[in-house]
C-alpha cells in the first residue's frame, strides 16, 4: 500500500529515488520495457529526419540507408537560414501562434465556463451545435468562407486569420467544458459563500485549478496555428508575411526536384519552437489540483 501511495501521488514522490536500481522490478520494470520499445519505434523517423538533414543529396538516396552522414553537411542548416528566409517565416508563424494562444485560451475557457456552470434554456441544443461545427468537413465549407471574407474586403489582410480566433474554437471549448465539469462543484460553492460573482469564480477559482488543461490548450492552439498552411496561403499574399508551413514547401522545386536534405533541415528548425513550448509547458503540467487547499 505504501508503494501504491507513492505511485499515485504525483506531488509527493521525490523523483531522484527512481535512480536506484533495486526499484526496477515487477510492474515498474515492465513499464520501462514497454516505454523503451515504444520510444524506439517513435524515435526511428526522427533519428532519420535529423540524419537526413545533415546529408548531401547523393547520400540521401543511398541504399541501404546510411545513418551517419558522410560528409556531415552542417551547411544545409546555414543554407536554409540564409537563402530561404526561414527566420522571417518563423517570426511570422510565431506571432500568429502566440496571438492565437493568448486569445483562444481566454475566450474558449470563458465560453466553456458558461456551458459548464450555468443552466440556461437552449444550452443543450447550443452545445450540440457547438459540437456539430467540428463535424462538417472543411473541404466543402472553405470556398464559401473565402467568399464571405472577400465580401467583407478582408482578403490580403490578417483579419481572416485573426478575427475568427476571437470567438474561441469548438475543440477547445469542448475540452475546457469537460475539464470544468470534472472540477468539484464545492470549490465554486465555497467561493460563492465568500461573495464571489460568476466572473471572479471563473477568474480566481476555476482558472487557477486548471493548469494542466490550460497547458494542453495552449499547446494545441499553438500547434494548430503553427501548422496551419491553408489560411495564410489563401488570405495573405506577400513574401514578407509568409509562414513556416508554406516556407517548407519551397523545397519542392518544379523541374529541379525536391531538395530533401534542405527540407529536412528546415523541418528540424521548425520543430524547435513547439518543442520548447511543450517542454516548458510540462513544468506547469504536473500541478494537479488539490481540493483540500480550496476547502
Amino acid at each position: 500500500m505504501a508503494q501504491m501511495s507513492a505511485r499515485m501521488s504525483p506531488v509527493s514522490a521525490p523523483s531522484l529515488r527512481g535512480w536506484r536500481i533495486p526499484r526496477l522490478k515487477g510492474r515498474r520494470l515492465t513499464a520501462y520495457i514497454i516505454l523503451f520499445a515504444f520510444s524506439f519505434l517513435l524515435i526511428l523517423p526522427f533519428a532519420w529526419l535529423i540524419s537526413a538533414s545533415l546529408k548531401s543529396e547523393a547520400d540521401y538516396f543511398a541504399v541501404p540507408t546510411t545513418w551517419i552522414p558522410n560528409p556531415i553537411m552542417w551547411q544545409n542548416y546555414a543554407d536554409v537560414l540564409n537563402e530561404y528566409n526561414m527566420l522571417t517565416y518563423i517570426g511570422n508563424s510565431l506571432w500568429l501562434a502566440v496571438y492565437s494562444v493568448v486569445v483562444n485560451v481566454f475566450v474558449s475557457s470563458l465560453v466553456a465556463y458558461g456551458f459548464a456552470r450555468f443552466r440556461f434554456r437552449g444550452r443543450n441544443i447550443l452545445f450540440v451545435v457547438l459540437l456539430a461545427t467540428m463535424m462538417l468537413p472543411t473541404q466543402v465549407t472553405a470556398i464559401s468562407l473565402y467568399r464571405t471574407f472577400r465580401n467583407l474586403g478582408w482578403i490580403g489582410s490578417f483579419l481572416p486569420i485573426l478575427v475568427p480566433r476571437l470567438f474561441g474554437s469548438a475543440f477547445d471549448i469542448f475540452l475546457f467544458r469537460q475539464y470544468f465539469l470534472g472540477l468539484p462543484r464545492e470549490i465554486d460553492e465555497a467561493a460563492k459563500l465568500d461573495g464571489c460573482g460568476a466572473w471572479r469564480i471563473y477568474w480566481n477559482i476555476i482558472l487557477p485549478q486548471s493548469a494542466p488543461i490550460l497547458v494542453v490548450v495552449s499547446i494545441t492552439t499553438f500547434l494548430y496555428s503553427w501548422r496551419d498552411l491553408w489560411n495564410p496561403l489563401i488570405y495573405l499574399s506577400s513574401e514578407g508575411t509568409r509562414t513556416v508551413p508554406l516556407g517548407l514547401l519551397l523545397f519542392f522545386v518544379p523541374g529541379r526536384g525536391t531538395l530533401f536534405p534542405l527540407l529536412m533541415a528546415a523541418a528540424v528548425i521548425a520543430l524547435i519552437p513547439p518543442v520548447v513550448l511543450y517542454v516548458v509547458g510540462q513544468r506547469y503540467f504536473d500541478r494537479g489540483i488539490v481540493v483540500a487547499e480550496v476547502r
Partner: peptide
C-alpha cells in the same frame, strides 16, 4: 516529449 513530437511536425516534413 517523444510521444508528442510527431504531432509537432509541420505538414511538408
Amino acid at each position: 516529449t517523444i510521444i508528442y513530437v510527431p504531432s509537432l511536425l509541420v505538414g511538408a516534413a
